[in-house]
Design a protein around this nucleic acid. Sequence first.
DNA 1: AGATTTACGTCAGGTTTGTTGACTTATATG
DNA 2: CATATAAGTCAACAAACCTGACGTAAATCT
Lengths: 167, 167
Amino acid sequence: MADLKPGVQHLYLRDEELRQGIELLFYAYRDFTAEPDAILAKLSMGRAHHRVIYFVGRYPGIRVGELLAILRVTKQSLSRVLSQLIREGYVTHRPGPTDRRERRLELTPAGQELERKLTENQRARVAAAYRAAGAAAVEGYKRVMLGLINEADRARFVGATAPARPR
Amino acid sequence: MADLKPGVQHLYLRDEELRQGIELLFYAYRDFTAEPDAILAKLSMGRAHHRVIYFVGRYPGIRVGELLAILRVTKQSLSRVLSQLIREGYVTHRPGPTDRRERRLELTPAGQELERKLTENQRARVAAAYRAAGAAAVEGYKRVMLGLINEADRARFVGATAPARPR
DNA sequence: AGATTTACGTCAGGTTTGTTGACTTATATG
DNA sequence: CATATAAGTCAACAAACCTGACGTAAATCT
């Protein structure tokens, strides 16, 4: 057999390695969202509702604009989903404490209940993966994931226990 | 200050830890898809087209049914996207070598070109994250991601260099 | 006080991506 | 020959996005 040129060999491994990294993300995200999607479908909601419920639960008192920045959707898209959630009693809003133009969003008890139900699954999935992979692997996972995320949003993840509220 | 009950403290950390794991996935996926989406938009295509192009490029000669299983969409959804890609000259098909009912899909040169252009960005992103995080972290990333993926699809990732073709 | 900016909502019209269900065609296989 | 499989297609529909323009209330600047 002819020897492979080292350069070519190297390139091949590198490409394969990178593709694997891409695909891991694709499959993980696909499987990660499948079960909550199924629950939501029964309530005539979609993934967009989950995202809103999740982040309102995560940052109680979050403003609409902050939510827009996190989700990277238009006002219109968010509006449709958010007003449905408010109408159906999962989310409430009140004026901001100093700036009364703001809407500070919070989950109602029903919203908290739904959030728990939806995220339960994902939490369990992450817990199982963390447990199976071990603490060192979890460190590595975080480091790589942080590198994939745009620099602007990495700040949210500094400090293990302080949820960095977006500004 | 009152001491926190250890149990409560533990639960809090655990919940925070898991939420962080969930959010890493959300933000990474969001940022990962943003740039290809922008390129696709100029060609009047969407993310679905990218997925098809990506996996046809990944598994040349893949059958339609295999693609359906990977993407987890209905025949109808795939059909619309796939026939557009064929019509516009990015993908070709030929009958299977032994079973002539099959359509074995492949990228045309134009398809390969587009695939490269679209995935280039994601490859660069993964490469940068891998480089910044280090080899050990990459190992951990893979282990955790594999744990997040449904068992059925983990087999694709055995062996670093053999792309396990779906059956 | 008036002008400007900001936070948020809304109206109108459009696309993509996804769905279900029923039917067709060609080929393989028991 | 009967049945099963791979794939395509038709019709009708819904979810979740988008753009662009306009409106309202409140804060802030000059």
